[in-house]
Computed example of a mutant assay.
Amino acid sequence: MGVAVVTDSTAMLPAALAASLGITVVPVHVVIDGEEFEDGAEGTTPADIAAALEARKAVSTSRPAPAALASLYSSLAAGGASEIVSVHLSGAMSGTFESAQLAARTAPVPVVALDTLAVGPCLGFAVEAAAAAAAAGASASEAAAAAMDRANASTSYFYVDTLEFLRRGGRIGAAAALLGSALAVKPLLAIEDGRVVARERVRTSARAIARLEELAVEAAGDQQVEVAVAHLRGEERAAALTDHLTERLGDALAEPIRVGELGAALGAHVGPGMLAVCVAPAVTSAP
C-alpha cells in the first residue's frame, strides 16, 4: 500500500473519486438539537441541515474523536500502509487536525498530520495532490508538502445570504454580523490563513454573485486550473455560475468544473443560499 491518505468529510470529495484515488474520508460530526450524527449519515442531507437552521434548531459540529482516528490509522497499517498522511481542514475552524495529531502519537506507523488552512473544495484539491504524490511513490512528508503547496496556491471565495449562521457557529464576531445586517449589505467572504474574512460588501445578491464570478476569473489568471462550485440549497445559482465560468475560462480549465452541495458539517455554519467557488492550480505532473 505504501503511503495511505486520509482526510475529513469537509473536503467534499465525491465518494467514487475518493475511492478511485485510495483516499479514506473520516466524517466530522454534526449535532442537531443535542442529537449527534456523522456527516453524511441519515438525517444530515443538505435539505435536513437547511431545514434545521431555518427552524432555528441548535446546530453545531464536533471533531472526530482522537480514538476514532487512532483506530483508523491502526487499520490502515494492518492493511499494509507504511506511512500515513492525514490532511485536514483549518485548525482555526475545527479541532479535527488536533485529533489527528493526538492519534498520530500512538499510531503503529509514522503519521504526518497536516493543517491545510483550507476547507471545502480547496481542501479536496489539496488532498488530491497528496494522493497523486503518494501514488507516484512520494513519502508521507512529500505528499503533505504537495498538499500544502496546492492549498497555498488555491483561492476560495463565497457568498452568504446572511452572516447570522456564521455568527451562531462562532466563525465571525457578533459585531461583524450586526454591521452586515444593519447596512443591508451582501457579504463576499474568503478563507485567508485558515479563517473566514470579509473580502467585499455589495448591495444586492445579484451583484455579489456577479462579483464572485469576476474574482474567480481573476484568481485563475493565465494558468491551467481546476475549479469547484459549492452551494447549499442554491442549485440554480450554482448552475448559472458554473455555466458562466466554463464559458469564460475555456481552455484554462484542466477538468470540467466540479459542482457539489455542502454536507451538514459545512452547511451548519453558512446557511441556505450559500454559494462558493474554489480555484486551484491544475496538477500537471506528479511531485
Rank of each mutant, 00 (worst) to 15 (best):
M148S: 11
M148A: 12
M148N: 09
D149R: 14
D149Q: 13
R150I: 11
R150S: 03
A151R: 01
A151P: 02
A151M: 07
N152C: 10
N152K: 15
N152F: 08
N152M: 05
N152V: 05
A153F: 05
S154Q: 06
S154A: 10
S154C: 00
T155D: 03
S156Q: 05
S156R: 00
Y157M: 08
F158I: 08
F158G: 01
Y159M: 01
Y159W: 10
Y159D: 04
Y159G: 01
Y159R: 04
V160D: 05
V160H: 03
V160T: 10
V160M: 09
T162P: 06
T162N: 05
L163S: 04
E164I: 00
E164K: 11
E164R: 05
F165K: 05
F165I: 02
L166F: 05
L166Q: 02
L166P: 00
R167Y: 15
R167E: 15
R167W: 12
R167K: 14
R168V: 11
R168I: 12
G169R: 08
G170V: 14
I172P: 01
I172A: 09
I172Y: 00
G173K: 10
A174T: 12
A174V: 11
A176I: 08
A176R: 04
A176V: 14
A176G: 03
A176Q: 14
L178G: 01
G180R: 02
G180C: 10
S181K: 10
S181C: 02
A182S: 14
A182N: 08
L183E: 07
A184G: 04
V185Y: 04
V185R: 07
L188Y: 04
L188N: 06
L189V: 06
L189Y: 00
A190P: 00
A190T: 11
A190R: 10
E192N: 06
E192V: 12
E192A: 13
G194S: 09
G194R: 04
G194E: 07
G194M: 05
R195V: 12
R195S: 03
V196G: 01
V196Y: 00
V197Y: 09
V197R: 14
A198V: 15
R199V: 08
R199E: 13
R199D: 06
E200N: 13
E200D: 15
R201E: 01
R201K: 15
V202R: 07
R203N: 09
T204D: 07
S205R: 15
A206W: 04
A206N: 05
A206S: 11
A208F: 10
A208E: 08
A208P: 05
A210F: 01
R211W: 06
R211S: 08
R211D: 12
R211M: 13
L212P: 07
L212D: 03
E213L: 11
E213D: 11
E213Q: 14
E213A: 15
E214Q: 15
E214H: 09
E214N: 06
E214D: 15
L215K: 08
L215N: 09
A216P: 03
A216H: 03
A216S: 07
V217T: 13
A219P: 03
A219W: 02
A220Q: 09
A220S: 09
G221C: 03
D222G: 12
D222F: 07
D222H: 06
Q223F: 06
Q224A: 13
Q224F: 07
V225T: 08
V225H: 06
E226Y: 00
E226H: 06
V227S: 10
A228N: 05
A228F: 02
A228P: 02
V229R: 00
V229L: 09
V229A: 03
A230S: 14
